[in-house]
Amino acid sequence: MANNQQVPDNDDERQITLVDEQGNEELYEILFTFDSEDFGKSYVLLYPAGAAEDEDVDIQAFSFKSSDKGDPAEGDLFPIESDEEWDMVEEVLNTFLADDDHRD
């Protein structure tokens, strides 16, 4: 996916529209954001909007530069390029998912 994004007018919506190289738009919801001191970046994890809770989905991850208000939906997304960053993001995601499973 390209780093193009569009944000809905409603600030309460935590959604981002990603546009791929062919111009196809897909709506995603923000799963969560986090900061990494090791890499000095902020990250956002997204999943397809409208996905059922028990549905297996591909989660998209990007580093981001937030808006002045600290909102990732209004900032710029950047691809994660290094294996070290991917490993760190996967570890954070796995911890998040494990914690979420324990809340049920």
Rank of each mutant, 00 (worst) to 15 (best):
D12G: 03
T17W: 04
Y47D: 04
I16R: 00
D83M: 13
D99W: 10
A52P: 15
E81R: 15
E85Y: 04
D71N: 11
E85G: 09
S66Q: 14
P79Y: 03
N24C: 04
E26L: 00
S67Q: 13
L45G: 07
N94E: 11
L93S: 14
S66H: 11
Q5F: 00
S67H: 11
A52G: 06
V92E: 15
A2P: 00
E37R: 12
I59L: 08
D58L: 07
F78Y: 03
D35V: 06
D35E: 13
K41V: 01
Q15W: 03
P48R: 01
K69P: 07
D71V: 05
F39T: 03
D12L: 04
A52Q: 15
K69A: 12
D99H: 11
M88A: 12
Q22R: 02
D38H: 06
Y47M: 09
D100N: 10
T33W: 03
G75E: 12
A73I: 09
G50L: 01
S82I: 06
H102W: 10
D83G: 13
M1I: 10
E85D: 10
F34S: 02
N4T: 11
R14F: 03
M88S: 12
G23L: 01
D71Q: 10
D83Y: 13
D100V: 03
G50A: 05
L31W: 00
A73V: 09
D54K: 15
R103I: 08
L18A: 07
I16E: 01
G50R: 06
P8A: 14
R14Y: 04
H102T: 11
W86S: 13
P8W: 08
F32R: 02
I80T: 12
S42T: 05
D54Y: 11
K69C: 09
L18Y: 02
E26S: 02
A98F: 04
R14K: 15
E81G: 14
D20L: 00
Y47A: 07
F96N: 08
D83V: 14
M1N: 12
A73D: 11
V57N: 06
G23F: 02
A52M: 09
Q60W: 07
Q22A: 02
D38R: 10
E84I: 05
F32Y: 04
K41S: 03
T33R: 07
